[in-house]
Design a protein around this nucleic acid. Structure first.
Length: 787
DNA sequence: CACCCTCGAGTTCA
DNA sequence: CTCGAGGGTG
């Protein structure tokens, strides 16, 4: 697969990118420092492009020091240079547990004895060196090139967690303390919100925000700007994790050094652990790989240090990094890539949504090439231009999100996105559905190909008629085939009239899974596929009945092509037949009435029992149904007004679709649900053994309970299985009772009593007693030892 | 007039 | 699964 790569490929890419980086930095030095041109501009640009490409293919290789992340070389010389007393080294990186294990083997061999490993979180921030003379902070400097950094003392003094004076005693007369300045994730969000409010550009990530805040200049600023600068600096925090040269330290280990630093009043991380083996360190790495979000700052890796100080001297350092420490880098959750274009898509409701088309890039474990931009205002707010290098991440580890442009990397060729005036699918002029709406919609609901395709797909979706086979690809084939030129479906009205003959001839163009573009054969023609047709080879009919020897003698070959409906085609028709008698609420959902999803549809179907009853109901009667209000009532009534909607009902009815619940006594019959779960709200999340996602919901409803999709304080139970996500956390936070699959199975059959809870109160309105013991989750699985 | 909740859309993966 | 938008309810 193109999306994965081997360790060897990564090694090769790393070697190449390091060579490129060295060369580029040399050239920049030559260019900015002296005047001799050592390479042509083309060569330089070529190297930069190659490096950018490598970093996109192997995001692990991106680092804050990369030439692709900095403008024209060395830090702008706005700040005074400071020479570090002791050189500030960086750390070597490893990218896998195997590489880490290899490093550990080498360390233990070179040490000649067992080694304790100090594991700590690698904060994604800015390395800073604090110099205290006689216990008083005199200088704070960035790392710079390791020898000379920038003097940011004035700004650092405004960071609260950094003491101006060391507490206690026992500190050397001159001491350099190393640490990381960062902005907590929460403060980062606030800061960006403020930047937006002020009309300033937003920071792409917390590290940039920390660096940007620290590198502000007070001179020449207005009073307001100064206040703003102070408030930004106040958001910064620092954690220290090391100490410069110290000849006769009173302790033997790095972990004890942290104790000393803390004793001096310096902020040290509580998230460190000493592990007696490399395997233990690997466990620490894996634990935080899964809990990166649970810490207040961004983590881009783990730092593992040999704990014993005596070994630091014995192992020594290379020119750029110590041999007694290593940084394990997690696959990045944020990467840079090129924004190739912004394209507008139209969904089933006609909403026009711009989305970013990007150079494919690997982020948080998968390759991403598209991300939604929601609407034109969001595009503006994010400030991205077509052609920009953009910062991309996976929100909640799943949904790709463009955060913003890397403004420094613009070359002037970028252009602004302009929202098209016409629907990209049918050419109709886009317009807001009502005054003041930001979203633009294509008003051509009936025949806009994008909307028809979307609605047909929706009919088949799980929340509607749940028709197997009828997914995105099939919906497209039925509504926009390459051949025949008139699609079998002009609207969803004809869905249940489809016959085998209508669909076997359908040809579609094969899309490339990698690029999303049409696949082209060697001769340049698009590659076609006939999804509803099976082609097999047989002997010609006249050869039937001959035996094998005879056939061979007469020269018959098995090359007579036979076309027959594919399994897909037959399955589709069977599924459509099954769909005709599914529950009324599913039929309602499949009609694509605004605001009528599974929940509202269930309420309406339960109350009225038939589509006829719904159609002839008054607005007030509709709105009297629980969960339905005036807006939904209007949407329902408006839907019936359109002729082509009537046509859907007529043709579906004629084809045998059941628009009524058999045996339903008629409107108003809703009646309070009873059953073991009457009056209780249950949320199912994760995979519950013995239930499908749908099945769990059905079980809740069948038992008279309410199946909700999100956890709130009104939720009585959260049934959570493996893979449960944020809902579980929310349930814990709210103290909602959490049960497992086995308890859930008991609950839906026997009610709360079956799992030892008090039975439901008679009145459904009475909230169930919140069970306090549910909130006492144990933190025992955390490997944290401190505090 | 607050919440709290559902809807709808987009996205990727197994 | 998550987010924003906007509807429903107390």
């Amino acid at each position: 697969m193109a999306e994965t790569y081997t360790i060897e490929e990564l090694d090769a890419a790393r070697a190449e990118s390091q060579a490129l980086t060295t060369r580029i930095l040399e050239l920049r030095d030559a260019y900015y420092g002296r005047d001799a041109a050592v390479a042509s501009d083309e060569e330089y640009d070529g190297m930069m492009q190659r490096l950018e490409l490598l970093e996109r293919m192997f995001p692990e290789l991106q680092s804050q020091d990369s030439p692709t992340q900095t403008v024209g070389g060395r830090a702008q010389t706005l700040f005074d240079p400071v020479q570090h007393v002791e050189r500030m080294l960086s750390l070597d990186n490893v990218f896998s547990i195997d590489e880490f294990a290899a490093w550990a083997v080498k360390v233990e061999r070179d040490s000649g004895r067992r080694v304790d490993y100090l594991c700590e979180l690698k904060i994604d921030g800015l390395a800073i060196n604090l110099r205290y003379e006689d216990g008083v902070l005199t200088t704070a400097a960035t790392r710079g090139d390791g020898v000379v950094g920038e003097d940011v003392t004035e700004n650092v003094r405004l960071i609260e967690s950094i003491p101006q004076k060391l507490e206690g005693s026992g500190h050397p007369p001159i001491v350099e303390v190393r640490g990381e300045v960062f902005i907590p994730v929460e403060a980062f969000r606030e800061l960006n919100a403020e930047q937006v409010a002020l009309g300033d550009r937003v920071f792409a990530n917390p590290r940039n925000a920390a660096a940007g805040s620290l590198r502000q200049k007070a001179e020449g600023k207005s009073v307001e700007k100064l206040a703003q600068m102070r408030s930004r600096l106040a958001k910064l925090r620092m954690l220290v994790h090391g100490i410069g040269a110290w000849d006769n330290p009173p302790v033997d280990s790095q972990s004890e050094v942290y104790g000393l630093l803390a004793g001096w009043g310096l902020p040290t991380s509580t998230y460190f652990q000493v592990k007696p083996t490399a395997e233990g360190a690997a466990e620490f790495i894996e634990y935080y790989g899964e809990h990166r979000d649970s810490v207040l700052h961004e983590i881009d890796g783990i730092v593992i240090k040999v704990d014993e100080l005596a070994l630091h001297g014995e192992l020594g350092a290379t020119s750029r990094a110590p041999r007694w420490a290593i940084a394990y880098k997690y696959p990045p959750e944020q990467v840079n890539t090129k924004l190739l274009d912004i394209v507008v898509s139209v969904g089933r409701t006609g909403r026009a949504t711009p989305f970013a088309v990007m150079e494919p890039v690997r982020v948080a474990g998968s390759v991403v090439r598209q991300a939604t931009l929601h609407n034109q205002d969001v595009v503006k707010l994010k400030g991205v231009l077509i052609g920009d290098t953009v910062v991309l991440r996976k929100a909640g580890d799943v949904i790709p999100e463009v955060l913003g442009p890397v403004v420094e990397l613009r070359d002037g060729s970028e252009r602004e996105f302009v929202m098209p005036e016409a629907c990209p699918a049918c050419g109709t002029t886009l317009a807001p559905a009502k005054e003041g709406d930001i979203d633009l919609r294509c008003p051509n609901a009936r025949s806009c190909p994008a909307q028809v395709r979307g609605r047909v797909e929706h009919v088949g979706s799980r929340g509607a008629l749940d028709i197997e086979v009828l997914g995105e690809v099939t919906a497209a084939a039925l509504t926009q085939p390459l051949v025949p030129s008139t699609p079998p479906l002009v609207t969803e009205a004809g869905l249940f009239d489809l016959s085998i003959d209508d669909i076997v001839g359908i040809e579609v163009i094969v899309k490339d899974a990698e690029t999303g573009l049409d696949r082209v054969d060697d001769d340049g023609s698009p590659r076609k596929r006939t999804p509803f047709q099976k082609v097999s080879t047989e002997y010609p009919p006249e050869a039937e009945g001959l035996d094998a020897a005879e056939r061979r003698k007469r020269g018959y070959k098995k090359d007579f092509r036979v076309y027959s409906p594919s399994a897909q085609a037959e399955k589709l028709l069977v599924e459509l037949e099954l769909a005709k008698t599914k529950d009324l609420w599913r039929i309602l959902v499949s009609l694509s009435i605004r605001h009528v999803g599974p929940v509202a549809a269930r309420a309406l179907a339960g109350y009225f029992g038939s589509l006829d009853a719904i159609r002839s109901a008054s607005r007030d009667e509709l709105a009297s149904v629980e969960g339905v209000g005036g807006i939904i009532a209007d949407a329902v009534l408006d839907w019936f007004e359109l002729d082509w909607h009537q046509e859907i009902i007529e043709r579906w009815s004629a084809a045998g679709v059941q628009f009524a619940t058999p045996g339903h006594p008629g409107p108003g019959a809703a009646g309070a649900a009873d059953g073991p779960l009457a009056g209780l709200t249950v949320v199912a999340t994760g995979s519950l053994e013995g239930f499908t996602r749908e099945g769990a919901q059905e079980a809740i409803i069948a038992a008279g309970g309410k199946s909700a999709s999100s956890v709130s304080k009104k939720t009585d139970y959260v049934a959570a299985g493996p893979g449960a996500g944020s809902k579980l956390g929310k349930a814990e936070a709210l103290g909602v009772r959490i049960i497992d699959a086995a308890q859930f199975a008991l609950l839906v059959t026997g009610g709360p009593a079956a799992i030892g809870d008090a039975p439901v109160a008679a009145e459904p309105e009475t909230p169930a007693e919140p069970s306090a013991e549910a909130a006492t989750d144990d933190a025992a699985d955390s490997p944290l030892n401190a505090e």
